[in-house]
């Protein structure tokens, strides 16, 4: 599979994940939405696509270094790794400007779970795009 296929799968997975994130939060009620449904569905789709694109690119470029055989497991690892890296930077920002950047534990737990979901969706799409594994290879 080439990079383009990974990016395409990443964008599709990301948009679906954005909608799923909205739905998940609507069910859990972890964070009360402040924007309208129309505004949020657009922003969640766009931000999800960006996250999916980044995760797909990371999987394409660094996937072979991740010590798992299954592409789904590698995608979950890549997605969770990126989320943790972003969260650690967020922690640093929170330490520098605590009035501006608040840490929110229930949101953190939900976010980590959602990052695993993004990896799973991406991994499944990549596996489908790659086609069946060669027999007796």
């Amino acid at each position: 599979m080439n990079l383009k296929e990974y990016l395409k799968s990443g964008v599709i997975a990301g948009v679906v994940w954005g909608w799923l994130s909205y739905l998940t939060n609507a069910v859990t009620g972890v964070f009360p939405f402040e924007g309208s449904f129309a505004q949020d569905i657009v922003s969640f789709s766009f931000a999800g696509a960006v996250f999916g694109l980044g995760t797909g690119a990371s999987l394409a470029l660094f996937g072979r270094f991740i010590p798992f055989r299954s592409v789904v497991a590698r995608a979950v690892f890549a997605s969770a790794f990126i989320w943790i890296a972003l969260r650690l930077v967020g922690d640093m920002l929170s330490m520098m400007e605590p009035e501006r950047y608040h840490l929110f534990t229930p949101g953190t737990i939900q976010g980590l779970g959602l990052s695993i979901v993004l990896g799973a969706i991406l991994g499944i799409l990549v596996r489908k795009a790659a086609g069946p594994a060669p027999v007796n290879a």
């Binding site: 994130s21 402040e34 922003s43 969640f44 920002l93 929110f104 976010g111 980590l112 959602l114 990052s115």
Partner: peptide, 19 residues
């Protein structure tokens, strides 16, 4: 970051620190 306002809900939902 208007850009902040646009993605405010998304960032909270995925657990990133925000206002």
């Amino acid at each position: 970051e208007g850009v902040h306002d646009a993605f405010h809900d998304f960032r909270h939902v995925i657990g990133m620190p925000c206002h």
